[in-house]
Structure formats: structure tokens, C-alpha cells
Amino acid sequence: MMKRINFLTIAIVAVVTLGFISCSNDDDTPPAPVNEEEVITSVIVTLTGEGDVVELESRDLDGDGPNDPVVSVNGTFQENIPYVGSVQFLNETESPAEDINEEILEEAEEHQVFFVFGGGLDGSVTYGDEDSNGNPIGLQFTLLPESASSGTLTVVLRHEPTKPNDGTLGDAGGETDVSATFQVTIE
């Protein structure tokens, strides 16, 4: 009887050991980094009115990491001068930077850029482009600063909004892909 137990014990220990040796094959090949897709790190809004250029930029190179986006506003708007604007979305974790606008244009029916005036900023936006259904996209637009004021301009990219909508975020719904707020002044 004891012999049988000894044999069993040895057999089991052997199996366990073998199992572990075969499992720990020590191929410590580190995994590859994930090439993050679908990331938008940067929004660059360029507005030109009668030769004057206003540039709004927001960059968040660590994505959902702890660093806040770096926001910069260059220039001030002049009252009642229409500014022709364009929005550029980029993924700058890649080199060269990936142009997200291409993706947005490919699925233009499922995207829209919104411009929200807040804090007493007095202005309005007219869309300058449209998708295949004749609804606005918002990568091209015209901004009209209506009176001297200062406040916030928030640029929001929504995925799968209701289209057409009344131009407000509440009516559009969908999911926020980008939301960047800029402190701007109209003189």
C-alpha cells in the first residue's frame, strides 16, 4: 500500500513540476505597444477675415492621461467681419500626424462639428460644407463676430448625431469625440 502511495506521490509531483516547466517557457518577449487608433490629439481652428488670421489650438498628446490639453488662442476677432474658418483634427501620436478629417469626411453623415458661443460672446456660425444628404459637416464654416464681446467658443465634434438637427448639442445628441473650449475676444 505504501509503495503505491509513494509511486502516486512521485508521479503527481513529477506531473506538477513538468507542467510548470513546460508552462514557464521563459520566452520573455515583451509585447508590442498598441498603435492607438481613433485617437484625436489636436484641434486646430484657422479663421481668416480680411487678411487677419485667428488661430485656436488645443492639443492633448497624452490622451486620457493626467496632463490637461494645452490650449492656445492667437489673435482677436474684429466686429462684423466674416471669418472663413476651417477645422483640422489630427492624431499627433503618430509621425507624420494622422489627418482625422479624412475619416470624418468618409463618414460625413455620421459626424458634425458644432460651435457653441458662451459667456456673452456674441457671434454666429454658418456652415460651409455638407454631407451627401445635404446636412452640414462643419469642417468648413464662416464665423461672424456680431458685436464687441468676450467669452468662450467651444468646438464640439459629435459622432452619430441626429442629422438634420437644429444646430444645438441637445437636439443633435450622439457622442462627443472632441470638445475644446477657447477664450476669445471680439473687438
Binding site: I40, T41, S42, V43, S58, R59, D60, G63, D64, P66, D68, P69, T176, D177, V178, S179, A180
Partner: peptide, 8 residues
Amino acid sequence: EQTIRGNF
């Protein structure tokens, strides 16, 4: 946390 996608 502030991200370019808004606050989380």
C-alpha cells in the same frame, strides 16, 4: 480629468 474629448 480634462481631455480633448471633454471632461471625464
